[in-house]
Simulated scan of single mutants.
Amino acid sequence: MIQVEHLTRRYGALTAVDDVSFDIARGEVVGLLGHNGAGKTTIMKMITGYLEPTSGSVRVDGLEVGRHRRAVQARIGYLPENCPVWPEMTVIDYLDFQAALHGVAAARRDRAVARAIARTALKDKATAAIHTLSRGYRQRVGVAQALLHEPDILILDEPTNGLDPTQILQMRELIGELARQATVIVSTHILQEVQASCERVLILRAGRLVLDARIDALQRGAGLLVQAEGDVAGALREVPAVQGVRVEADAASPRSWCVDAPIDAAPAVAEALARAGVRLYALQPRRRDLETVFAEVNGLACPSAPEVTHA
């Protein structure tokens, strides 16, 4: 659906996006994650054709953005981070105007506007002037305009910006609904939004793509977590499957230990701890959340106690 190859964008001496490549398949919900200034918005502007790359290419359905800009943009619904709206217009008038700009036929326009209002829970504000709306409602108006023409690709830059907790849950549900019909890219610096809404994450750091992985795969294969009292590291020295042991949390009693071993090594770990007289309180797979992964790839992970490895 989307092929990004060696995409680079420079502003004088500043390289905002540095040789980024990735593919996104039809129907995927992908989170574009990174600190402010990591290059997320710049990449989205190049995908949508609002900004030309310094080098590299973007293809949508086989069409190169630079050569087939209008055809590509017709397939995309885009919510910029600060969505431009006309404050003096009412919500329904603004959406009708946007539907015309998107090329929605006059005979279908009323239905398209009504559907977008319903999907973004704007019915009670449909006749209100946009300047009277809260930031959260203005954000919903921005999402509504991106949905009007039923695009194949929906690109949302910080879609939950300014929303209250209830509205955030509604937005997540809407993204899930949209994913049944469209490819969705969600750009954010909020880890929980990617965790809750997306099935795959692209993490950017200083303009470079540092991680491209499915979220469920990131959470697997992180070793074992042991809660115990005693010399856990000493007890596990002779277990062949254990590659290392480190203290996960040192302040509490019992201590938590991270054991670098596959999940199927759990019985051998339990037996070794029992033989050594270690009091075992818990033994379970250790799963990483997206916050942990993000800290690792950005070099922000907090150092643990010294790791104990086999001699």
Rank of each mutant, 00 (worst) to 15 (best):
Q284C: 10
S187N: 07
M44P: 02
A217V: 15
S256H: 13
H6K: 14
G39T: 09
E64F: 08
L236C: 01
A233T: 05
R115T: 13
T90V: 00
R279C: 01
K123I: 06
Q284E: 13
F294E: 02
L290I: 06
S197K: 00
E173I: 00
V60E: 03
L209M: 00
G49W: 12
P254I: 00
S21Y: 10
P151T: 02
A99D: 08
M46P: 02
S57D: 13
S256Q: 12
M44C: 10
T41I: 04
A16R: 11
L224S: 02
L33T: 10
I175R: 13
R172P: 04
L147Q: 09
L154T: 09
E52K: 10
A182Q: 10
R135T: 01
R138V: 02
V104E: 07
E150H: 09
A114D: 13
G31N: 13
E271L: 03
D264H: 13
R246D: 04
K123W: 10
N36Y: 12
R237T: 06
V29R: 09
D93R: 14
A252C: 08
H149D: 08
F22D: 01
Q219K: 14
A100S: 07
V20A: 02
P151K: 12
A311N: 07
V4W: 04
L14S: 11
D212Y: 08
M89A: 07
A16M: 05
A128G: 04
E296P: 07
